[in-house]
Simulated assay, not measured.
Amino acid sequence: MIHATREGGPASGDGRHGQDAQPVDLAREVADYTARFAPDGGYRRPGRADRTAVARAVGLLVDGHRTEAERILSGRDFTVRTILDRVSGHHYAEVADRTDEAVTPRGWGRVYVDLDRTPRFSIQIPHPVFDKNTEQVGVRVLRDSPGGVLVIAGAHRRAGVGNSADVAHRRDTVFYAICAELVRRGMPGLQLHGFAASTAPGYDAVASTGAGSAARSDARRLADALGNHGFHVCRAWAEKCPVEGSTNMEGRAADAADVPFLHVELAPGVRLESPAADRAATAMSEITHRWATAPAATRSAPTG
């Protein structure tokens, strides 16, 4: 597949691309990153200035202003490097927290931004490890769909004090700030979760639009695509489903901006069995491909 170069983006302006990219297996990189996540792992609640700065910098990176993004991120102890995923052949900018390797990491997350196509949508992983293998399903979708931004939470859901690391249900996190920044650019989001088999017996997936309805047509297409790949789907807009995601904070931010948001819950048999996970990712990629090729939504200026 031939990918168009981003206008004004890292491939054509102030960023590093091509021969400077470090070849990696993205799935292995993500697995190594999340391997340390545990309920008693490190998490430090970020201040407003930290959340705002990191989110603004990710927005600048998405817009192709890498030099300024790197300057801001460095001031918040984040790094940016260009990687080449050996499996997909795609280039990504990796935004990583320098404290990830510390004895007590602060757990503010990681982001992968497509450098080969203008980013048009996000894939959100709020509960890596806790919702086991959702991070790997997210990598599969990113690989299948040029133009994506993968946002991964930086700690186990039960790390930190109380529910402070439960980024799907709080607004005072770096994860939420980044997703909200992408929403301000009109970028739809696909958020992946996992449920226990006993939570929704007989279902392989629960598809919903969270608190809003802007993604209703996309949700129908997604449910149909999952069904065509052999999965039994509970459609939250048409029937009563568990774990519908109506209290999801990233979904509420998208609803307030009338931006499409899909909340997808996957059963263990879908997330943990590689052939099933591949089929589910292929189905979800049908929607992200639509988002990647749709006319760009009007994007707001980055927050100051």
Rank of each mutant, 00 (worst) to 15 (best):
I178T: 07
A236H: 01
E244H: 02
P275S: 11
S217M: 01
D63W: 10
G160C: 05
R6N: 11
L190K: 11
P275L: 07
R44D: 12
F130I: 00
T34F: 04
P119C: 10
D258P: 00
F130T: 11
F78C: 04
D144V: 00
N133G: 00
D224R: 14
H263Y: 14
A292Q: 10
P268R: 10
D77R: 15
D278L: 06
G18P: 04
G42W: 01
P10T: 09
Q19T: 08
H127F: 05
T5F: 08
H263W: 05
R185N: 03
R117I: 00
V54C: 13
P201C: 07
G89C: 02
V30A: 02
H90C: 03
W237R: 05
S274T: 15
G109W: 00
A11W: 03
P275G: 06
E7P: 09
V139S: 07
R44K: 13
T104R: 15
Y203V: 04
V58M: 05
K132P: 00
V151A: 05
R220D: 15
A69R: 12
A155D: 12
R98P: 07
G154V: 07
G47F: 09
D97S: 06
P10D: 06
L266G: 02
T298M: 08
A153C: 06
A180Q: 15
H169A: 02
D116H: 11
V129G: 12
R98Q: 14
S12C: 07
V243L: 01
A31V: 06
E239Y: 10
G18S: 14
F175C: 09
A257Q: 09
E181F: 06
A211P: 09
R235V: 08
T67M: 03
D25M: 05
G162P: 03
T82E: 08
T79Y: 00
F121I: 03
V139C: 05
E101V: 11
A301H: 14
R143H: 13
W237S: 09
A277P: 11
G59E: 11
T104W: 13
Y176S: 00
R299Y: 01
V54D: 13
R235N: 04
A219P: 03
R170S: 13
R279Q: 10
